[in-house]
Structures are given as structure tokens and as C-alpha cells.
Write a protein that binds this DNA or RNA. Sequence first.
DNA 1: GTGAAAGCGCTAACAC
DNA 2: GTGTTAGCGCTTTCAC
Lengths: 345, 345
Amino acid sequence: MTTLTTPNQVTLADVAAKSGVSTSSVSKVLNLPAESYRMSDQTRQRILDAVAELGYRPNFRARSLAKGKSHTIGVLFEGSLPTNLRDGEHGLMGGFEPVLRQAEYQIIYVPVRRDSDDWIQLLSDRRVDACMVVNQLVDYVWDVLEQLKLPTVLINGVSDHAVSTCNVENVGMAKTLTEHLLSLGHQRIWMYTNIHVHKHYSVAERESGYMQAMSEAGLAKQIKSSHLEFDAFVAELVHAEQRPTAVVVYQHLEAVRLLQAFWRVGIKVPEDISVATFNNAYPVEHVIPPLTTMRLPNEQIGSQAARTLLEMIDHPTTDATTTQDISRFDDWELIVRESTGPVTK
Amino acid sequence: MTTLTTPNQVTLADVAAKSGVSTSSVSKVLNLPAESYRMSDQTRQRILDAVAELGYRPNFRARSLAKGKSHTIGVLFEGSLPTNLRDGEHGLMGGFEPVLRQAEYQIIYVPVRRDSDDWIQLLSDRRVDACMVVNQLVDYVWDVLEQLKLPTVLINGVSDHAVSTCNVENVGMAKTLTEHLLSLGHQRIWMYTNIHVHKHYSVAERESGYMQAMSEAGLAKQIKSSHLEFDAFVAELVHAEQRPTAVVVYQHLEAVRLLQAFWRVGIKVPEDISVATFNNAYPVEHVIPPLTTMRLPNEQIGSQAARTLLEMIDHPTTDATTTQDISRFDDWELIVRESTGPVTK
DNA sequence: GTGAAAGCGCTAACAC
DNA sequence: GTGTTAGCGCTTTCAC
């Protein structure tokens, strides 16, 4: 921790005056690599001392203006702040904020909407240098980003457009989760996704992982993946003549609700049915019973996305497609809790 | 929705050129009230047309530089993003963001720490115009804000210093919640606060409300407010020779955990014990059983805080204490769910 | 090795 | 009524 000096409005000129040089010399010392210009070690030291002594910090805005770069990146999402951006201490934010802060980038969070252009104004007013798009890149957003020629990284989404993406490897993850249930002796395992809420590439991928695991276990005939609304699904399950003994739920929000729904009708978890889901976010650990989940590598994804973006900003290519890089993260982790147990009959 | 024109880098000069006037005229039209200068309606209209036609938007940074104000406000908090800032769609953010956005203020979220001065650098680099401090104003933060002479509003906290604050009226809220339990016939009602986690002025206030309600019901002797660690409290309650029939929990996080703890030891909610808490945040509605809570007026608080802050920025007073205004919000709401029920024995 | 000067896009005082 | 001018704090080119 440096001394808590008054973080006053010291300017470059003050530093220059104090060290008896011009502002341009100070600027060089502060911004350019030492090799790229010539200056006596003496002067350099004098300048550095003055900077330290005055507690000088560059004015972010003035610098942006002069450089013609805003040093701001926009984080775009549809609707309200996605829960995977942050849960508790973690989430994507935990990954990209430190990286961007480190690189002295400012972040603005931008909710996008089809029927308004507030968000376009915002991107425009702030002259953002680049964007991270979270969870999906819809067409009207893509159109704008392309027009603005903004470097873009898509996080946790897929797109037909030539855009770099950072994603979870969902297939393997879902397969692992399903295999956990299989290893407990379950055979009638359903999968549930509230497709009305979650329209996302990962739905198909997780289903695919579930199906692979089932097929490999010789249970292809048992495969059943429901896309009903929540209440309809509960009704379907409860009244099934062959009720499943386990269910893989696409997302923790529905899993939590499912526990409550089962409780209402007297179905015991895990005795009557095991429940497993994705995303080790609050409150999966604190519900009744604690949920077995897959921890997603959100922080890694976030930090990789930020690094990719910085890279794109530093090395702009005219040919957008060459910068496109697709990362898949597979360092998820199965966390077994009490919502899954051995099949009982 | 205006037409989606390319939000290009149109400058004031472009507008000036297009409408055949000087940049200062354009600037006047855009920034000053019509009464404060003279200009022919014709020219004004020509300028307005050009602005519209070119889709001109001022460069936020250039404007800040010229005005010497950053048009940025810092939202300060200790540790990680407080949950009351946002839960789901609501929370304090839902209150202040629209107000500040409307006033064209930018928000930066600043985690503060005693043993580092990153955050001071951040405030300093960005030359924030003012601050909102969330949940508590600790001394080392106050010292800095005072030194920087930053207008400040404290949200959901109290302070000895002369600072404007926006708070919940906790006493009445806790009293109402306790009265709900009393009206169900409960007499042995405990209160629980994990004081190791929550060190906050509202702890005492909520306790006070609880005590008032108990006293007025002639149950002063039954008052018991525990400050133990979570597990110790559970143990104390479970093994009490006279177990309470209801418990008021300071915060929803602990209430959720309490439900789980009771489930583990076979205590039924609400048959054996009723649980009531504060903060109608996720997942109180989805746990087993759904929790009775008080909805806090977070959005109102947030928007009031933002308005107060803008006011302070616009009308700076040399005498800080005169600007101090204390608001207490009491439009909370009791939401009764299944975790509270009539006393059974 | 170092500094002068122009300019980033805008605002505001002051001329005319 | 409208334009000129001088900055805001910084970067960068280029001259010395």
C-alpha cells in the first residue's frame, strides 16, 4: 500500500514543472517503453521521483480524448443482469473484471433491447472500444456491432457470425452428470429444460450429453427430455405411470423450484427421486436437500474472454474472421450433495 | 425508437459545418436553456435539424474534460457487491441507475478495502464527482471522501459524520413483523442475528422493533435475541428446554439456512416453529416452505439517494452540514408465506 | 536527449 | 444574434 496522499488533481504540467522538464517528457516516461525514445537516466529518475512525490495520476478522460480510444468496454446482455455474471463472489465478472481493471479498462454494463436504442446511444456516447456479449448474440445486436466495427467476444453463446467465443464444454459436462446418476443405479432418468425461459445453445448440448450417457449405458429407450412449462412438467412427472427415479435439470433455478414442487406433493428427494443440475450458484447448497450440481468454470471463461478482447483491441485485423477464436472450457467439477442418492427400488 | 442510424463519430464541428454556424452556437443550443442567450429561431432550427440528420451525440469524455466534471459517480461498498444492490430485477440499483442514467451520469462500482488504495486511485483517476456509499460508512472511507471533498450520500447505513443518508425505517418494520407472529398466537418468539456476519446499525433497530412489539404484548420476559454463530444458535435453539415457537431472523440468508438446519433435525416449519425474516429477495419464495418476509423499499431508497446526490452536485454548499438530510423510508410490506403459521400448542 | 506545438471534441467567456 | 478564442489534460510528431 502506497502512502495515502491526497489524490488531488495533480496534472502532467505540475509534474513537469516540479521536475523541470516538459510535459512531453513526462508523458514519454509514463507511457512509452524505455527503448522507444532516448532520455538520460538522470532526467527519467527526476521525473519518476516527481510523479511519486506529487502522487500524480493521469486523468483518464483526457488521456482517452488524446488517444482517441475510450479505454472502455461494454458488457452487453439482454434483459436484466444475467445471473451467471455474478453469483456470490464468483461468476464471469470475477473473471473479466480483474483482467480489465489491470489493463486500465473501464467496464460499462449495457442492457440491450430490440425495441429501443438507448443502448446504442450508450455505446456511442461512451465510444466503447470493444464489447463482450453475454449468453447470446442476437441479430439486432450483431448488426449494430458490425456497423460500429467493434471488436467483440461472445461469452457463453454461439453464433453464425464470425465472432470469437468463450464457452463451456457442455456435452461432456452433462454426460458426466448423467453418469453420476447412472453409477447410483438409476435407469429411468429424465432431463428437464424450461425451454420457454432458456433458449440457448447449451440446451441442445446438455441434452446431447445426457443422451450420450444414456445410450452408452444401453438405456437409449429410457431417454426422455421434457421442454414443458414448469407446472406442466411437474404434473407430467408426478402422474407418469413409470415415474423417473432421477432427473437432470438444465438450470439450478428450476431445480430449486422442483424441490419445492416435490415437497408439496410428498415426493421425497433423493429417496423417491434424485435431482441433479448445473451451476453451483446460490442457493443450491442451502436448499432442502442440498443440490448435486456441476460447477461451471465461469471465472476462467470470463478472464479468457477479457484477454482475447484486449488482444483484439491491440492487434486489430482488417479481416475479422482471422481473429475468430473459439474456446471451450472443460474444467467444470461435479459436486455431489444430498439431492442425489442410490436408486431405492 | 429513433431510426437506427450509424452512431458514428460525428463531431460538433460536423454539425456546425452542416448547419453553417460555429461550434459554439451548436453547443449553446445543445446545452443552455433557451432563455440564457439570443439566437434566431431559424438558426436554432437549422442546427437542430443538422443534429438530428447527422445523428450527432456529444462525446462524453470531451465534454467532461471541458467542463471539469467527470459526470461520474462512484458507488462504494466493502467486500463484494452487496446483495441489496440488486436482487433479481430490484434492489438499490434498480432505484438509482435510471435516475443517474437519465441525468447522464456514469456509475462506477468501487469495492473499498482498508489495506489497499486501489479504490482511492480509481476515484482519483476517474475524477468522480460524487459518491454513494452502500451499507456503511467506515472511517477510512470517510477520511478519504472528506479529503477529496466529494459530495456523498450514505445508503442503508448510519454515521456520526455529517453525511446525507437514506435508510429504511427498521424499527417499525421489525415491529410489524413481530406483531404478525403475535397475532398468530406465538408468545415464545426469539430473534436471531448472526452478528459476526452482520455488523450493522439496523441490527439494533430491528431488535428494538422486535422488543417493542413483545413488550407491548406483555411478553417482555420472553424477549430473547441471540447473536451466536449460526451453528451455535441452532444448537441453542434445538436444545432449549423451552423451545421458541417462532423466530424472527435478521436476514434472509440465515433464514434460508435455518430452514435447512431445522429440516436436518426434524423440526417442522411452521408446525413446530414459525420463521419470519426481512428482505424479499431470491430465493425466499422458492425454499421449503416459502418464507414470510418484509419487502424492503430498496428501489425507492436508491432513487431518492440518487436525487439527493444530484442535488448536492448541482448546489454545492461550503457548509457540508447544511446539506445533510436524513430520509427514512417506511413503505415496506409484509409478505406472508407458509413459513409462519398459528401456534400449535 | 529534450521540448514546442498541434490537436483530441467540447465548453464558455467575450468580442463583434 | 453569432463567431472567435482560449482552454480542459493529455499524447504525439517533429524540430532542434
